[in-house]
Design a protein around this nucleic acid. Structure first.
Length: 294
DNA sequence: AACCGCAACAACCGCAAAGGG
DNA sequence: TCCCTTTGCGGTTGTTGCGGT
């Protein structure tokens, strides 16, 4: 833990939302050097952030394998059950939800599930997500906020996280192009990995779990957007424009898959990332590029 | 058109645990 | 064993967009 070699002079750290440039720096740095001493990351990566902030940003946003978008019915059930069982042990709950971060689970619980659970105790009249979804879907994805600066995820989220009603077997909406947007990894990997490994050496099949590489869900189209986004004048605007009114549908297919008996994991084997393997991927970020075998 | 309240969620803060010197 | 630093976690806050009035 202690990393005295990482000692650095105190400085005024930047706070607030991360800019695309900062994200890029952090990504590049970690892709290049792997995970190590977070306190050393800011200076080495040329960021005016503290290590804690970098770590958080990486874990909650930039880390490979993150699954963004609405929670499937199955995921909701897991959260509700585990919350009842474990209490607010978000990190532990998140462990059962591949691709979800504790922060995301926590936010989802606080903003929606808690009310729903409370509500359900009241004659089972749960405040159904559609209430908001209905209005959201009529817009560009609704509640995406400042944080929508990061856009697509939030776009998916805001509308999506409340779209449980959309989980309808009779409505197996599947749009690979959209589904791909559920993954931050897909956002940046195509470009970042190329940057790290070199265009020649980078191929999807070589770096992704087979199930992922073959799933076709990791589409470059989104990565291309990121490129635009990065070069755009406004992170937030770009992303907002990217929000899709139908984003809330993304996960219903995931849910459908889950309900369809994926069994081993809510998304594993369903044509999505094999998120159950993502732990290995995280672990892959050790110290060298050689370890970056996705 | 302006204002207000609500919702969503990223990010911050503080604390405790872990681990090296 | 103690001290110090880093890391991880959970609670909370801040910011922004949207709908309603």
């Amino acid at each position: 833990m202690g990393c005295r070699s990482c000692d650095k002079p105190k400085m005024n750290y930047r706070k607030g939302l991360w800019s695309p440039e900062e994200d890029q720096r952090l990504r590049d740095y970690i892709l290049k050097h792997g995970l190590g001493c977070w306190s050393a990351v800011p200076s080495k990566a040329g960021l005016q952030r503290n290590g804690k902030s970098c770590r958080l940003r990486w874990i909650n946003y930039l880390r490979p394998g993150l699954k963004r978008g609405m929670f499937s019915q199955e995921e909701e059930d897991v959260v509700i059950n585990l919350q009842a069982k474990l209490g607010n042990k978000w990190s532990q709950i998140a462990m059962h939800l591949p691709g979800r971060t504790d922060n995301e689970v926590k936010n989802y619980w606080n903003s929606y599930l808690k009310k729903r659970v409370m509500g359900s105790s009241n004659a089972g009249k749960s405040p159904s997500p559609p209430e908001r979804l209905a209005s959201m879907s009529a817009t560009t994805g609704g509640g995406s906020t400042a944080t929508s600066t990061h856009g697509d995820h939030d776009a998916n989220h805001s509308g999506g996280s409340h779209g449980q009603h959309a989980i309808s077997p009779a409505e197996p909406f599947v749009d690979p192009q959209h589904e791909a947007k559920n993954f931050v990894f897909a956002d940046w990997m195509p470009t970042a990995a190329v940057a790290a490994a070199g265009p020649e050496s980078y191929t999807m099949s070589a770096h992704w779990p087979a199930s992922t590489a073959s799933s076709g869900n990791v589409t470059p189209s989104h990565g291309a957007f990121v490129g635009d986004q990065m070069s755009g004048s406004s992170y937030g605007n770009a992303l907002q424009h990217h929000q899709h009114p139908q984003d809330h549908h993304h996960h219903q297919s995931a849910a459908a898959v889950a309900h369809g008996g994926a069994g081993a994991g809510m998304v594993a084997g369903g044509g999505y990332f094999d998120l159950l393997n993502m732990g290995d991927i995280y672990g892959g970020f050790t110290s060298t590029n050689d370890d970056l075998l996705f």
